[in-house]
Simulated assay, not measured.
Amino acid sequence: MQITMKKIFLVCFLLTSSFLLSQTTDKPQFWDKVQFGGGLGLSFSNNYTTISIAPSAIYNFNQYIAAGPGLSYLYAKNGSLKSNVFGVGLITLFNPTQNLQLSGEFEHLFITQKLGVDKSHFDYPSLYLGAAYRIGNFSAGLRYDVLYDSDKTIYASAFSPIIRFYF
Rank of each mutant, 00 (worst) to 15 (best):
F44W: 09
Q63A: 14
Y144E: 06
F159N: 11
Q29W: 07
F13E: 06
L71S: 02
I135E: 09
L81F: 05
V88M: 10
V88C: 11
P28F: 10
S43V: 09
Y75S: 08
N95A: 05
V117L: 10
L21N: 09
T49D: 04
L40G: 12
T153Y: 02
F165A: 02
L142S: 09
G39I: 01
I53F: 08
K119N: 13
P96L: 06
L71R: 00
L147E: 07
N60A: 12
V85M: 05
T92F: 04
K6G: 15
I3V: 15
F110L: 11
S150W: 03
V146W: 14
Y64P: 01
Y133D: 05
F9V: 14
T92A: 12
T92R: 02
P161A: 08
L74Q: 04
S72Q: 05
M5K: 15
L74R: 02
Q63P: 01
F44D: 06
F86M: 10
Q23E: 12
I51V: 12
Y64K: 11
N78G: 07
I162F: 01
F159D: 07
N60V: 03
T16F: 15
F36V: 08
K33M: 09
L20D: 04
A156M: 09
P96M: 04
G39T: 03
D145W: 02
L129D: 10
S139T: 01
N137P: 04
N84D: 11
D145V: 03
T25R: 09
I91L: 07
L71F: 11
V11E: 11
M1I: 14
T49W: 06
D118A: 07
P161S: 07
A156P: 05
L127K: 08
S126H: 07
N47T: 12
L90C: 07
